[in-house]
Write a protein that binds this DNA or RNA. Structure first.
Lengths: 345, 345
DNA sequence: CTGAAAGCGCTAACAA
DNA sequence: TTGTTAGCGCTTTCAG
């Protein structure tokens, strides 16, 4: 691993000027086939690798973007990251990944370092902070948000309202009247919008909203579990629960199991965000899926090849999908018999 | 977003020389408090951000490392990546992430691009290729492997043999004699080592190895499911199965469910690699956990701050842990009654 | 078609 | 303590 060959070495060895080598390797300008071949041969001989740093310095663009997520082990984040990587690859960009763990201060530090690296832009799933960090950042470097938007800044988000509406309609259609909402300030977007959509849809369907059935957990697994368990215990009459995030859904499943509630015979469970484990659950969980991968892909696209649209800052909204599996059935005591036997799939 | 201020701008505005500004900002050398403050003030005023490209060019090191995994949406890879990010952060390094989808050609391309970026090193979970790509790569840039090693090159791996031994001993201790092994060429390391360890342990325990119970799937979910299902159907006498990867474990769970086999009453299931869903399964799955996060952390450490040890190329081996949950019990018809009632947890 | 030279932003001798 | 200067590897006018 000795000193790597530079363009100068190649030029010398090929007996030509620096510029010629540059032209050959970047395909710009015109060179006689003869010298061209010679340069190429020498370059291979020397195992020459053009230095991206030299080029970046000259060109004033690095060909890399920053990707900032709360937590790469969260399947939603990972899936979205995969989308970003897909797109970046087709566009020949590198992706510098970092995680902020929902800490605004850390988000700030990371953005600063990314700016020093002169990334061409940043894609971020913002944490639950107030967005001050991001408004500052967006003044210095192009930023596109994914999964969760910030007013006035470009973003790619899912149509949460429609998603919530679809699942609530489904639940009510099944005959449920006492539907609980398990919400909270969970980092990956379970803000107040979903709760509002829940309330609105119930109102539209003329089902009374029982405030006691709307519970909010903090963003730890323990808090989520406690909230779910206490809900089930306090109100044995709930026949269905919508969990606003996968953490909350996990809590609901575990709490129901802990209390020996059968799903969906005793209680139906649905959650927002599809996870690999949702299919492995018994019964498999009915979910509202956000197109995480697409969101990542589109965000990268918006950032890298659609500056005009990005400037306008209006969010790109992607459709969600209601995936009906086996965790929801008619409420107990309703015609239709055992909910289990009416599993959609 | 106009042209960013350079060190020259700062120097001019503060009425000092370039070097002085550089000294102040990098903390090197000595400067009078007076000028120091002035420079700092001007820098803040101009919102000056030192350019990492300029510095990299001069210093001949970029402060970033490459991280190459087969698939970032795989929980094992994601967890390992999180470990790498942790360590990189404490060392002030950036991480350029890319995915190769177990394609050697693509691994090669990515390595080339990473080399052009002049990363300080590369951490990789290699795909199932023959390692030629990596032997070449290691000649040009420091490489550390994680999760799966390559002979002669530095790596951080788990003690698979001990892990397999532990779970097989556990199964046999429970009374199982017809233990199946569900293996295959799965991308994230389910090579022949695990199968060999399985055979060896059974032999040690004087349990006959039935070749018909050792099945290999290809690395698709379909193939895994087919392998598991056909195993269960062909041999209704298997009382326990060890799945060599999480994909295979998933297949075993699904196949058992599809055939209405009760776990663990009819069949016990254990798998290698702990996944979030293993706890959500019903019953929760007994697993051999590899310390994915630690492996990532240690790999980064080895790469960045232990060049001497790295050079030696001997693998760092981390312990696995047998996590006993509820998916394994005594074989049917053995004293101990319903396996279900004897759940460990 | 080709080469010489300037300069991207920064750091580190070296001089003062 | 401070400023001047060279040069990291590359692209790109501008001459020839």
């Amino acid at each position: 691993m000795r000193r790597a060959a530079t363009i100068k070495d190649v030029a010398a060895a090929a007996g030509v000027g620096l510029a010629t080598v540059s032209r050959v390797l970047s395909g710009t300008g015109s060179v006689s086939p003869a010298t061209r071949d010679r340069v190429l041969a020498v370059a291979k001989e020397l195992d020459y690798r053009p230095s991206a740093i030299g080029r970046s310095l000259k060109l004033q663009r690095t060909g890399s973007i920053g990707l900032l997520v709360p937590d790469i082990t969260d399947p939603f984040c990972a899936e979205l990251a995969a989308g970003v990587l897909d797109c970046a690859r087709t566009l020949g960009e590198h992706v510098i990944l970092d995680v902020a763990h929902d800490d605004p201060e850390r988000e700030g530090e990371i953005v600063d370092r990314l700016v020093e690296q002169r990334v061409d832009g940043i894609i971020a799933i913002p944490g639950s902070g107030d967005g001050a960090v991001w408004r500052d950042a967006a003044r210095v470097v192009p930023v596109v948000f994914a999964g969760r938007g910030l007013p006035g800044l470009p973003s790619v988000v899912a149509d949460d309202r429609s998603g919530v509406r679809a699942v609530v309609e489904y639940l009510v259609g099944l005959g449920h009247r006492r539907v609980a909402f398990l919400g909270g300030h969970v980092s990956v977007a379970a803000g107040p919008e979903r709760e509002q959509a829940f309330r609105d849809t119930l109102a539209e369907l003329r089902v009374p909203v029982d405030d006691d059935l709307v519970v909010r957990a903090r963003s730890t697994a323990d808090s989520a579990f406690a909230a779910a368990a206490s809900l089930f215990q306090r109100r044995s009459d709930v026949s269905a629960v919508l969990a606003a995030s996968h953490l909350l859904g996990e809590a609901a499943v575990l709490a129901a199991r802990g209390l020996d509630l059968r799903v969906p015979a005793d209680v139906s469970i649905a959650m927002i965000d599809d996870m690999p484990w949702a299919e492995l659950c018994d019964p498999p969980l009915t979910v509202v899926a956000r197109p995480a991968r697409d969101m990542g892909y589109r965000a990268a696209e918006l950032l890298l090849r659609d500056p005009a649209r990005r400037e306008r800052g209006r969010p790109v909204v992607l459709a969600t999908e209601l995936i009906v599996r086996g965790s929801c059935g008619p409420p107990a005591g309703l015609p239709g018999g055992s909910a289990r036997s009416s599993r959609t799939r």
